[in-house]
Amino acid sequence: MAEITVVLPPGVGLHARPAALFVGAAAKSPLDVTIGRPGEPGVNAKSILGVMGLGAKAGEEMVVTAEGDGADDLLSSLKTILETPEGGHA
């Protein structure tokens, strides 16, 4: 299983909009993807409510995992999404 650690930049908590963008990207992949805090079981990264439910705040470290072919590429694109400040999505 591949995993990557991302620190949420200032201004990027995983509330509705960032969660929707992240989940939208994760859901396009056929792989199993999770997101969670280090040392805790992750939640399904394809569930908007699950990801919002983490209540992750700016500055927090999150671990994203994926299993299967292309996992590394997927994780690096998800990392980019998480690290993009909100204004950058507009």
């Binding site: 509330h15 509705a16 569930s47 908007i48 409510l49 699950g50 919002m52 439910g53 209540g55």
Partner: peptide, 21 residues
């Protein structure tokens, strides 16, 4: 209540999820 913020609630039941923002 699967997710709760001061300004939003997400409630989950039997595979359905509803968000109030």
């Amino acid at each position: 209540i699967a997710s709760l913020f001061p300004h939003a609630m997400g409630i989950e039941a039997d595979g359905y999820s509803v968000l109030v923002h």
